[in-house]
Design a protein around this nucleic acid. Sequence first.
DNA 1: CGCTTAAAGGACATACTTATCCTTATTAGA
DNA 2: TCTAATAAGGATAAGTATGTCCTTTAAGCG
Lengths: 144, 144
Amino acid sequence: MLSKACEYCIKAVVFLAQRSKEGKLSIVKEIAQAIDSPEAFTAKVLQQLVKGGFISSVKGVKGGFFIEEKTLQHLNLLQIVTAIDGRGLIDNCMLGLNQCSEVNPCPVHHLYKGIKADIVQLLNCSLVNDLTIEFSQKLSVLKN
Amino acid sequence: MLSKACEYCIKAVVFLAQRSKEGKLSIVKEIAQAIDSPEAFTAKVLQQLVKGGFISSVKGVKGGFFIEEKTLQHLNLLQIVTAIDGRGLIDNCMLGLNQCSEVNPCPVHHLYKGIKADIVQLLNCSLVNDLTIEFSQKLSVLKN
DNA sequence: CGCTTAAAGGACATACTTATCCTTATTAGA
DNA sequence: TCTAATAAGGATAAGTATGTCCTTTAAGCG
C-alpha cells in the first residue's frame, strides 16, 4: 500500500507537528526514536519532506526539524503520500492495466473504484493537525 | 497494492477460466499474450498457482494449463492474493505498526479499517467464475 | 577563530521484486 | 523409439526499495 519511506514520513510529520506546537525543534535521532525507524534512512526521507516544503529544517547546533504553523494548518496525508510515493495508489488500476476506465474496465474496475475513492478521501481528509491532536491526547500511537 | 506477480496471476486465471470452459488448454505463450505479460515470468507465477492447487497443468505436446470445473466454482481472488502476496494487504497496519488495533490504534486506524474490510470483501466476493463471464461478454478486458 | 552539533548530500550495501535464460522432465505423435 | 512440444526447475541478471556510512555544509557558542 504505502512504501516504508512514506510510512516513516507520515509518522514523522505527526510527531514533528506535536513538537512544533510545543515550540520545539526535533533532531533526527529523536524523530527516529519516536516513530521506531532506522535513523539514517529517516534522515533521507526527512530531506525529501524539506524539499517538498512540508517541513522545515535548521542546521547546526540547536538545529533540527519543525513544521511552520501556517503549513500545518492545511497539510494533509494526500500531499505527503503523493510527494513520496507518487500518484500510483491514486491513479493505478488494481490489475496494472495502462488504460483502465469506465469504458475499458479491468475485471475489478467497478468494484475497486469506490475503494480507491475512499482511500483518496481518507488521505485528503486526514489533516496532520487533527491527527496530531489525537496523538497528543494519547488516542493514537506512532510505535509499539 | 498488489505485486506484479499477483496482477499477472489474477489476469491469467480469468483468461484460463474462460478457455477452460471452452474445453481448451492454454500454453504459457497464449496466456502471456492474452494478458500482456512477460512470458518467462508468467511461467514462474503459473507454477505457483499449480502448486497452490488453483490451476492444473499438463506437460508435453498438447499440454498446457487449465482450471478444473469444480475448482472454478468456488475460486475467488482472496485465495489467489493470499497465496501469492501473503496476508500483508489484509493484516497490516497502513502505517506499518506491528501492533495496531482498536485499543492501540495508529493515527489512521479508525479511518482505514473500513477500507481494509472493503478490500477483503472485494477480493472474497470476486468469484473468478463471475469475472470470467463478464470477460467473455467483453464487458471487461485483461490488456489494452 | 575554532570547536561542536546537526542537516545535506553522495556513495555504497543489502534485500526483495521482477525478469530472463538454460537445462531437465514429461508427454503426444510419427 | 525418436522427435517435437511444453511445463518444471535452477541459475542468474536487472531494477527498485530499503538501509548504512562517510564527507560536506551550516550554524551556535565559547
